[in-house]
């Protein structure tokens, strides 16, 4: 078990200010650690990785890691990543988005990236709230939860990111919570090597903006809730519907290995050139 932290330190930009900017107990740090471990486990060189992030708390993650990093406009991380991947298909492009980034303003891009099946690895860090801008309710805020803009409870139903992406035809769709770091390592590792569009949704608690308004007294209470209610998808499908609302399903939702858009594009070019590269 040793050397895990040592390994993470090798990938950090030590010219940046540490400890990092996230609130105490924010799960984003755990996801960052998991991403670094997965990249290391797959043996991908630092220079072959492009980390693209949008706006939000999750947009701070690329600042700290020593990959090629792009910090893009709100919701358009996937479009930048699509351009990078098509311009140089040899690069491993990882997109880090928050829930507001992925589902609200960039929801369209997420759906179409999944439909196109372009070879990206998308990490959606779902904290159920717009954390950075002051805790407004987002499109993934669960029904009935409180936030700055829904002081009497959210009246709209929430998005299920994994199910939407699966329905749009993504190759690999999975979900984990930050309490399951080992599962998260496995899922992100798979998402890195699988061809086509791979999405891993990570449920990460935001105590500062979400927890305090929803009867979680401490950060640790949110982690306890995650630990108690994370259910493997195999068990989840057999549960009665009223129980399904209270738990979080985790695991692999969809796993295919169709060729990505960039492979099909290269193939098409070759065909049109009469077999020459």
């Amino acid at each position: 078990m040793a050397k895990v932290t040592q390994l993470i330190h090798n990938y950090l930009r030590h010219t940046k200010k540490f400890p990092h900017v996230f609130c105490p107990g924010c799960g984003h740090g755990i996801v960052l650690g998991s991403l670094i471990r997965s990249v290391h486990a797959q043996g991908i060189p630092k220079d072959d990785i492009v980390l693209v992030a949008g706006i939000g708390c999750s947009g701070r993650i690329p600042v700290y890691v020593d990959f090629n990093t792009v910090h893009t406009t709100h919701g358009r991380a996937l479009t930048f990543a699509t351009g990078i991947k098509l311009a140089n298909p040899k690069l491993k492009v990882i997109v880090i988005m928050g829930d507001g980034d992925a589902m609200s303003i960039g929801g369209n891009h997420l759906m179409h990236s999944a439909r196109r099946n372009i070879g990206l690895t998308a990490l959606v860090l779902n904290n159920h709230i717009y954390g950075m801008t002051g805790g407004q309710s987002s499109s993934t805020t669960p029904f009935g939860c409180y936030s700055t803009t829904t002081p009497f409870g959210q009246m709209e139903k929430e998005f299920d990111i994994a199910e939407i992406t699966k329905a749009c035809g993504a190759n690999f769709v999975a979900r984990a919570t930050v309490m399951q770091a080992n599962l998260m390592d496995r899922l992100i590792s798979t998402a890195l090597i699988n061809p086509g569009f791979n999405l891993v949704e990570v449920i990460t608690p935001c105590h500062t903006q979400f927890g305090r308004k929803n009867k979680y007294k401490t950060t640790v209470d949110m982690y306890k809730w995650l630990k108690k209610n994370a259910t493997p998808i195999e068990k989840y499908v057999d549960m009665p519907p009223e129980k399904k609302k209270e738990v979080v399903s985790t695991g692999v939702f969809s796993h295919k290995d169709c060729a990505g858009l960039e492979e099909r594009y290269a193939q098409m070019r070759q065909n049109l050139n009469g077999g020459a590269a």
């Binding site: 932290t5 993470i8 924010c26 740090g29 755990i30 471990r37 930050v178």
Partner: peptide
Amino acid sequence: EVHCPDFAI
């Protein structure tokens, strides 16, 4: 070690 968000352990 794996669940420390700040890589401090």
